[in-house]
Design a binder for these strands. Structure first.
Lengths: 237, 237
DNA sequence: CGCAGTATTGACTAAAGTCAACCCTAGTGG
DNA sequence: CCACTAGGGTTGACTTTAGTCAATACTGCG
């Protein structure tokens, strides 16, 4: 069940009591299927729901007034992609399905009510947003200071950990993103990204297939991306 | 008084009742002076306090294990620079004074207690973190998609708004940051940043003096940076 | 006065972007 | 069942942007 997925996510980093867990699982929500290549939250909206990703892959886009779009976050199953909209409902980004995606739309009112009645849940929500921000900070640092290879390696390493946390990884992980979108996420042109991926494959580090990443030598991937998973706060109280 | 500054900040975006306002102002805290060029929160620490910037300028640094540092956020008076550490106390960044800085160190326990007793304050804290994340997202997008001039123009425009919100701007604003640090914040080398600043000055857009930014033509600055202040959520409920 | 940190400039290099062609594959409709 | 098409991926040749290296100037302070 979708909410159980999110409860599991929260429980990784927050201790919740029985009552809180039950209250969370009782949240109302509307299951929705989103076609590929569709914005399901648009810039300029006033949000009234938060979207839990149940299945699929979602990009958060920032947009300048000129219409340039840029991916600032990727969301995988178990992520509440726009939980921050509960406290900042004026939307300045878009959520876009990169594959056919199943989401659960949960009313802000319900989330807010839950947070008000259960301080522990309020803290868990806040913490979930803090981890999201921590990832953003890391992306900012990567874009500012790493070269193309380092940025790509770092992102592939990050996604390996994140898919690992939801039990979707072994020698690799599902990652159904096009090179155009991946290029956008790491601030490169698709052409240059393609060359970087080619090099990672030739060097025996990792292979990006159309919807899967094969990890050939994770140690070297981590070194190439100077990756340290601490910012993902995996399993901290 | 320092806490009044922060109360004012929160009140811009959150409605707080009298009791909540009083409780906030009653928070305990230790006033501290930080020398220039000093980390006052270090990577790897377990944080027990959040730092309210009272006076001065602070940079948040991300650091890779190789020791490369990169500025991911700038904090001005009125900012609670590491409020997120209340829910994520394992520190993966550093806070560094760019000028002699006065801070107020507020115990996490007090902030947590306040949030537990007053859901409105909990929401206000969460919201404050959401705006911080919104700025991070914008920086990510800028680094990914804008050229050097656009990045610098955007940052100068953002800081103009942020200093404006604390009443420290007229035809310009105080911005005591060196070119080396500014270069770090926008992901450029100091040499190239210097050339960009020269161009902004020559074009009559803005002049960066050692500790002040003179805004010569704000409209063109905004255009050059494709700046839209919506992400700062100025004055939204 | 001299030093250290900061800022400025020029000449050169390297990384990434641009442009354009071509390939490959999955899906469509005849 | 096959030809066509469109989107994604790949490659080469060339351009542009920003980085590097190095020298020089400025400024506030001991």
């Amino acid at each position: 069940m979708a909410l159980a997925l999110y409860l599991r996510r929260l429980s990784e980093r927050s201790q919740l009591g029985d009552e809180e867990r039950a209250a969370l699982l009782a949240l109302p929500g509307t299951a929705t299927l989103v076609d590929v290549d569709r914005d399901f939250v648009q810039i300029g909206e006033q949000a009234h729901h938060a979207c839990l990703i149940v299945h699929g892959l979602v990009a958060r886009f920032a947009q300048t007034r000129n219409g340039d779009r840029s991916i600032v976050a990727l969301h995988i199953p178990g992520d509440m992609a726009d939980l921050h909209s509960v406290v900042a409902p004026h939307v300045t980004w878009a959520l876009h399905a990169l594959t056919p995606t199943r989401i659960l739309r949960i009313p802000h009112a319900a989330l807010r009510g839950l947070a008000e009645r259960h301080p522990g849940i309020a803290a868990a929500f806040w913490r979930d947003c803090a981890v999201d921000a921590s990832i953003l900070a890391r992306w900012t640092a990567n874009l500012g200071r790493k070269d193309a290879l380092g940025r790509v390696a770092h992102l592939l390493a990050e996604m390996a950990v994140r898919y690992g946390l939801i039990g979707q990884r072994d020698g690799g992980y599902p990652f159904p993103i096009t090179q155009v979108d991946l290029a956008d996420a790491v601030g490169l042109t698709p052409v240059h990204l393609n060359r970087v991926l080619k090099r990672l494959a030739e060097d025996g580090i990792a292979v990006k297939d159309p919807d899967y990443v094969r990890l050939l030598d994770e140690q070297r991937l981590i070194r190439a991306g100077e990756f340290d998973p601490a910012y993902l706060q995996p399993g901290r109280g």
